[in-house]
Design a protein around this nucleic acid. Structure first.
Lengths: 305, 305
DNA sequence: TCATGGTCACAAAGATACCTTGTGAGCACC
DNA sequence: GGTGCTCACAAGGTATCTTTGTGACCATGA
């Protein structure tokens, strides 16, 4: 799946830091390794790519054009890795004195890592110590319970219903998009607009019954005559793959197909007369504002966009 | 910059394959390693995260909820890594008998890897041998020269002017977006709309003179009274970082800030009365259609979205 | 001219992590 | 009970990475 010519994450990071600092040695000390190790790693990377990436001189190093190119690509990998890091850090954080939160699956998977990265860089820029966050990912109902019982200070839920007794604030929306593979007839530019009736009458690729996206879709199409699904799969990744391979249209969370749409693996279809938007809320117990401290900062950050 | 708790790319890939196959051994053989190695890698990863990721049983393995979460995050990293792989593969490919292309920097950095991934999966799905592509990244004028001289079969250029004697086809647009950091006054929801005059009168963060984005910006604002730039930087990454840190507004290629906008590190501002769109074209020599074979397929794929 | 501080590369030795081979145990199906 | 599948444990070799030590080159300033 992934070729043998792709360097390590750490090596990619090294290249990015070299591009920023303009020196192998400076980059090495920033990453906590010796200059020799950095030099060696860069050479290994150049062997993988087959072209020089760094132009060494006696007073510093610049990237070659090829190196600049690789750095641009590596940046995207590292951005994603940083979100992964934020997620893992939230899973790892010690419980004492830190921020405990719970989030529904959609939010935990697609939005929270970005918010945590943003919050952390924001805090670092202001000279604060970054908050350690511990996260639990579960369904919206359970999130509400955890907030209610005080097990977590803050929750993130989806769905229209306000959990009773909890305060909330809108932090975003999760839109289901209808997508098809690029070989599907709907993907022709002139046909990217279908009616809700047409969609309902078309055999779709769907998630299993009970999943959040399936529920939203069924509720939205409840009044229309429905075709039976062509495929029923248990993960969003499987749905994306099936649609890309041409199995049929599907409705998928917008965040999950961001990259697929950008690379053209999937094509978005506009459905007229259908609202597939869910509201995403931060919820907490007590006063009209979130608990003082990091919880309030996180909510403010998440709601800011 | 990137924490010590982030697993290797190969380890992440292993986890994803385990999630698909439902078995450590099957995943191992798919990746060409032994079952024991896979088991060990997963255990290392679990030590990094601090929680079990895989629920082992005597007849197969499933992911734990935490594991599912990590896979979702890992998927995004691997998607980016796959684009990096496609780019590196294009840089490495042997020259004989394969497809040689040239592309302007913007396209090579942000779009071409996605197209190559898409083309490859498309070919694999149809049972074809994937085409090896060799790429040169340079500026638009040089790309036109390479196509004209026959050194490459296909080029990708930006800008309105049609290189003389070459045929072309529109494959996308590159829009410059005006962005600010989340702490900037314009980022308030009510102020995300400014006029071209206001923008021109505001000190901006800009790229160095001669760069493509700078040229487009200056041409678009040519008739208006201009403030002097607050910062002049030589890479898009530096501009993004400066804007995120609050240095001021900047105009950046839409593809370069896709992730920043999604995570809220940057906020997009709408500028009324200003068109910052460039057209991106595939160009070739000869007949009205691209050269038969992989070149034509690549153009068709790129133009399809 | 010479000293100093900066850059990077080469070489050898150590530590560490990784992978493979070999083995064992549990479960399901025939 | 045999066969095939699952995964885990242990031992050994190998490869890689890292550190230590050294050398060459350049710019700056005395």
């Amino acid at each position: 799946m992934i070729g043998p010519h792709v360097p390590d994450l750490r090596a990619l990071e090294l290249l990015v830091v070299v591009s920023r600092t303009g020196s192998l040695g400076a980059a090495a000390s920033e990453l906590g390794i010796t200059q020799q190790a950095a030099s060696s790693r860069v050479r290994t990377m150049e062997a993988l790519v087959g072209e020089p990436l760094v132009a060494r001189s006696k007073r510093g190093s610049e990237l070659t054009p090829t190196g600049e190119l690789v750095v641009q690509w590596a940046d995207r990998v590292l951005d994603a890795a940083q979100e992964l890091d934020a997620g893992i850090a939230a899973l790892r954080a010690d419980r004492r004195g830190h921020l405990d939160i719970a989030a529904s699956l959609t939010i935990a998977e697609h939005l929270l890592p970005g918010w945590l990265v943003g919050l952390r860089t924001h805090q670092v820029q202001r000279g604060q110590q970054p908050t350690e966050v511990r996260m639990t990912a579960t369904n919206s109902a359970r999130v509400a319970e955890l907030v209610e019982s005080g097990d977590v200070a803050l929750g993130f839920v989806e769905g229209p219903e306000a959990p009773c007794g909890l305060r909330r604030r809108l932090v975003g929306t999760d839109e289901l998009l209808v997508v098809v593979g690029p070989q599907h007839p709907w993907s022709l530019r002139s046909r990217r607009r279908v009616s809700a009736e047409t969609l309902a009458a078309t055999p779709l690729v769907v998630r299993e019954a009970g999943s959040g996206t399936r529920t939203v879709l069924e509720r939205a199409l409840a009044d229309l005559p429905r075709a039976t699904p062509v495929l029923e799969l248990s993960s969003t990744a499987a749905v994306r793959a099936a649609v890309a391979a041409g199995a049929g249209p599907a409705a998928v969370g917008a965040h999950a197909v961001r990259d697929d749409l950008a690379t053209g693996r999937l094509v978005r279809i506009t459905v007229t007369g259908l609202d597939l938007t869910r509201r995403l809320h931060a919820v907490w117990k007590g006063g009209p504002h979130p608990p003082e401290g990091p919880a309030r900062e996180l909510v403010a950050w998440a709601a800011r966009r």
